[in-house]
Design a protein around this nucleic acid. Structure first.
Lengths: 205, 205
DNA sequence: TAGATTGTTAATCGATTAACAATC
DNA sequence: TAGATTGTTAATCGATTAACAATC
C-alpha cells in the first residue's frame, strides 16, 4: 500500500536496487526475486519486499519480479524515466573526468552546462560543450531552470558556489568538495568525499 | 565509557566530524561545542555527544571541545594518524583525476601504486608514479601488503579486479564503478556512484 | 559564583526481521 | 496440484532524542 511518507533511508536504497536490476538485465536475465536481489546486495529479502511495498505491488507470488517492469517502476518512483539537465561547476581534473564520464546518459541525467572561474578555461570545450564563466552561473542556471548541479570546485569556494546555485533555484546538489555544505530546507545535498569513505573503512583495519 | 561494539552508523559519522573540525581549525578556531558542530552538520547536539561517548570523554563541561584535541582523538579512533598506502586501479579519466587529487595526503592516505590494463598507459607516469600492468596487481599488492584500494575500472571489469585484490589481501575497497561489488566477510567495500546519489535526490524534486 | 556544556540515562521513535496467509 | 515467493503484520531490535546531574 503506497504511503505518503517514505523514509529517506528507503529512498536511498532504491537507486541501489535499480543498479542491480540494470546489471541483471544487461546479463539477459528477465526475472528475479527478493531473495536473489538481497543476496547480491547483502540485504535481507524481507527488507527489499518491505521497501518496495511503500510504493506498490510489483511482484507475483511464486515467481518474483519481472526485471524490466520493476526497473520501470523504480525509475518512475525516482523520477528518472525522464532526463534531467545537470550543471557541473568546477572543471579541474575531477570536473573534467565527470564531464567526460559516459555513465549519466542512460540513467536519467545529462550534463548540459559547464562552469569554471579560470579565464584560461572559459570558452574552451569538452566534448563540444563550452565552459562558461561562473560569474554568469546564477543568470544562466535560473534561466534554464536547472534543478540539479554537481560541484567540483576547491573546498574554499564550494559554499559560495552552492549559495549561488540556491539563489538560482537549484534544488539538488552533489558536492565533491571535502566540506559539509549548508543549504536551506527544501534543497537537498549529497556529499561525495572519497577520503571520508576511506576513513570509515580504516576503523575496521 | 568506551564500548567494544560501536555501531557502524556511528563510525560513518566520525569522518564527517573530522572534516568539520578540520574546517574550523583551518579558520583558526580553537574551541567548539556539540551544539555548534551539530548546527553546522545538521545533526542534533545530543547525537554528537552520544557518538563521541562511545570512545571516551573528549570535552569539558562548560566550555566544549578543544578542536585540535578532538581531531587527534578521532584520527586515532579511525586509525588515520598514520598514512595508509593505497593502490588505484583503472587510470581512465576518473582514475587520472583521483591520482592527481591532492586531498589525500594530509588526511591519512597516499596513493603509491597505479594499475591499468591498457598497454598504451602501462609504463607511463602520473606525477612521477608509474602505471603498472594490472596483470601484476596480485603479486605486487600482496608483496607490498597494501590493505586499501580504489577501483576506477569499467563496470564489467570491477568484480574481477575486486576478486584479485581480495586474493592479494586487500581489506578495504572504494569502488567507483556503477555496480555493487560482493566481498567476503572481513573485507569492507564502499561504493561511490554519482548517479545513485543524484537519483536519490530526484525523488524529492 | 553564575552560566554553559558535557556525558549519560531513560524514553521515544523508527527501522529491520521473522513469520505466514495469500496466491501465482 | 505442489512448490515458491510475494506483501504485510507484529515483534524485535537499534538508533535518536530529551532531560538533567555533574562539573568546568
Amino acid at each position: 500500500m503506497p504511503s505518503s511518507e517514505v523514509p529517506d533511508i528507503v529512498i536511498g536504497r532504491m537507486p541501489i536496487y535499480l543498479r542491480a536490476l540494470r546489471f541483471m538485465a544487461a546479463a539477459g536475465q528477465e526475472i528475479t526475486s527478493s531473495h536473489e536481489l538481497g543476496q547480491r546486495l547483502g540485504i535481507s529479502s524481507a527488507q527489499i519486499r518491505k521497501d518496495l511495498s511503500h510504493f506498490g505491488e510489483f511482484g507475483k507470488q511464486g515467481t518474483g519480479y519481472r526485471i524490466s517492469h520493476l526497473q520501470d517502476q523504480i525509475k518512475r518512483i525516482l523520477k528518472v524515466e525522464q532526463e534531467w539537465e545537470v550543471a557541473l561547476i568546477g572543471i579541474g581534473d575531477l570536473g573534467h573526468a565527470i564531464a567526460r564520464y559516459g555513465g549519466f546518459a542512460d540513467r536519467g541525467f545529462r550534463i548540459t552546462l559547464l562552469f569554471d572561474s579560470d579565464p584560461a578555461k572559459i570558452g574552451t570545450r569538452i566534448d563540444n560543450l563550452e565552459i562558461l564563466d561562473v560569474a554568469r552561473l546564477k543568470e544562466i542556471v535560473a534561466e534554464r531552470r536547472i534543478k540539479i548541479v554537481m560541484i567540483a570546485v576547491p573546498a574554499q569556494a564550494a559554499q559560495q558556489v552552492a549559495d549561488l546555485c540556491i539563489e538560482a533555484g537549484v534544488k539538488a546538489m552533489l558536492n565533491y568538495a571535502p566540506i559539509t555544505l549548508t543549504a536551506p530546507e527544501g534543497v537537498r545535498v549529497q556529499h561525495s568525499d572519497p577520503v571520508a569513505y576511506l576513513q570509515r573503512m580504516t576503523y575496521y583495519l
